[in-house]
């Protein structure tokens, strides 16, 4: 597993604390929505960057009011066919104004990277022998877009109207 953030391979500063292991005493952690609900005060008291991981049946509305506390929101693709997180990502960016790291986790395939980028993800948990190479190939696949999303890439319609 490798993490690509803003187009670069990086080491994940967040410790995934969503499993049974105890929270590390310090440093950035990634927790589940349930943990956030149960241990909100303690998590905030740590004073270190906080990430939250949402399952595909947990819409971002659940955390809309708390977003300022999170440096990272990780949205899960339990199967690549489950496309709910594309909508969640757009809502987080375009409606709730989340500007932190938006990470795709789970069954994240090369072929979906561009859809993810366009809906607002900027970080990807990816697999494979050459994740960065695959990432770059996927980025180069297409250069024409028909749909306006929050990423600001101009659509074909907008470009046509400029001429």
């Amino acid at each position: 597993m490798a993490l690509i953030k803003d187009g670069k391979l990086v080491t994940d500063p967040f410790v995934d604390a969503s499993g049974p292991e105890a929270l590390p005493p310090t440093g950035p952690v990634l927790v589940t929505y349930d943990q956030w609900q149960a241990e909100r005060a303690a998590l905030l008291a740590r004073g270190t960057p906080l990430g939250i991981r949402l399952h595909s049946d947990q819409p971002p509305e659940l955390i809309a009011a708390d977003l300022r506390h999170f440096a990272l929101v990780a949205l899960e693709f339990p199967k690549f066919r489950d496309g709910r997180a594309y909508s969640y990502a757009r809502l987080l960016r375009e409606r709730y104004g989340f500007t932190g790291e938006l990470r795709a986790v789970g069954d994240v395939l090369l072929e979906q990277l561009f859809f993810m980028l366009r809906t607002g993800f900027d970080a990807f948990d990816v697999q494979g022998a050459d994740p960065l190479g695959s990432y770059r190939t996927a980025l180069g696949d297409l250069s024409v877009w028909y749909q306006p999303t929050g990423d600001g890439r101009p659509t074909a319609m907008q470009l046509r109207r400029k001429h």
Partner: peptide
């Protein structure tokens, strides 16, 4: 047609 082609949000509908 144009709007729906490779829509980034709606390419993996239920």
């Amino acid at each position: 047609r144009q709007y729906s082609f490779l829509h980034p949000e709606f390419s993996y509908l239920p």
